[in-house]
Amino acid sequence: MIDLRQLSKTIDGKEVLQDVSLTIEKGEIFGLLGRNGSGKTTLLRLIQQIIIPDQGEILFNNVEIKKHPKVKQNMIYMPVQNPFYDKYTYKQLVDILRRIYPNFDVTYANELMNRYEIPETKKYRDLSTGLKKQMSLVLSFAARPALILLDEPTDGIDAVTRHDVLQLMIDEVAERDTSILITSHRLEDIERMCNRIGFLEDNRLTNVMDLDELKEEYIKIQIAYESDVNLAIREQNIPLLDQAGVFYTVLILKKDEKKKQFLKDLKPKVWHELPVNLEEVFIAKFGGKRRW
């Protein structure tokens, strides 16, 4: 589907991305994680050719996009904010996008607008943040692209709207084998939607992995001791997720029998092993002081 090959980009003298390679398959939802300023938005803009990489290639179905820009009709980019849309109503935007995307499905767009009760006569700039996100997604999906690039699509919207937005994405992938590359600081959204994830840090894409396999690597243990063992646990570099008095919640690799035995040697009064979620894994893998 889409192949990124050794992409590098420097902006205003600062290296933002270095040697980034990634392949996204048909019907895959890939979650791109990273701290603010890590290059997530830059990578999406490179794929859409809004900016051009200093080095590397971007191919869609083995066709280099830079040399054959018409293949961009198979991709659409939804940024955090879209000032281009501001002065237009829904119908005006449909007229514009139909000329750019020949497969634009007006009937489908109208159906989604009615389903989510999004006003069609208001200008985009006059809609609430949640309605803007929903309309942008409606227009993106109605363009019938093979790949959708989503930059923080659930940022700034309420829980009910988030649920609708996420379900719309999941349904689109299930019904049409659309591929989605999504950035988000909401790890619960990534966990719900994505097949694979990757983490942008130090200008590079690292730890590209299957989400289910990643979670299977770790185990969460809730334990209680008669005395305070916080320092002893930390000295062993065991990620401590939570502490309430002498009750602790820690995360370790399932295969790390040494750390597991260390915790047992402290003679716990309570020992419960539990499944983990994505946020807990990232605390263990990248350190609690990271922000994504």
Score class of each variant (00 low, 15 high):
60 F>C: 03
64 E>L: 05
126 D>K: 11
160 V>D: 09
139 L>G: 02
131 L>G: 00
131 L>Q: 11
44 L>G: 08
146 A>N: 11
70 K>N: 04
130 G>Q: 03
32 L>W: 04
123 K>H: 11
95 D>E: 15
138 V>A: 00
38 S>E: 12
106 V>N: 03
65 I>L: 10
143 A>D: 05
32 L>N: 09
26 K>P: 04
123 K>I: 08
18 Q>R: 11
56 G>E: 13
55 Q>H: 14
78 M>I: 14
18 Q>I: 01
58 I>L: 12
112 L>G: 08
145 P>W: 01
156 G>M: 07
94 V>F: 06
93 L>G: 01
157 I>R: 13
39 G>Y: 08
160 V>M: 05
75 M>R: 00
82 N>G: 02
18 Q>C: 08
89 T>I: 02
139 L>A: 04
78 M>L: 14
16 V>T: 08
40 K>T: 12
120 E>W: 09
78 M>P: 02
125 R>C: 04
123 K>Q: 13
88 Y>G: 03
137 L>W: 02
58 I>H: 06
28 E>N: 07
142 A>V: 01
91 K>Q: 14
51 I>M: 12
152 E>G: 03
111 E>L: 09
33 L>H: 04
28 E>W: 07
47 I>W: 02
22 L>C: 07
46 L>E: 03
70 K>F: 12
15 E>P: 01
85 Y>E: 08
60 F>Y: 13
131 L>M: 15
104 F>Q: 06
131 L>A: 01
133 K>F: 05
81 Q>D: 11
143 A>S: 09
140 S>W: 00
39 G>P: 01
130 G>L: 14
75 M>N: 02
119 P>H: 15
65 I>N: 08
55 Q>V: 14
119 P>L: 08
35 R>H: 10
144 R>Y: 06
86 D>H: 11
33 L>S: 07
40 K>Q: 07
32 L>E: 03
129 T>M: 13
106 V>Q: 08
27 G>N: 03
126 D>Y: 12
103 N>A: 06
35 R>P: 04
140 S>Y: 00
13 G>I: 06
86 D>T: 10
131 L>N: 08
73 Q>P: 02
145 P>Y: 00
139 L>F: 09
87 K>S: 10
153 P>N: 11
149 L>T: 13
134 Q>T: 13
160 V>L: 11
126 D>S: 10
29 I>S: 06
64 E>G: 05
85 Y>T: 07
133 K>Y: 03
154 T>C: 07
156 G>N: 09
43 L>A: 06
35 R>T: 13
155 D>W: 04
75 M>W: 00
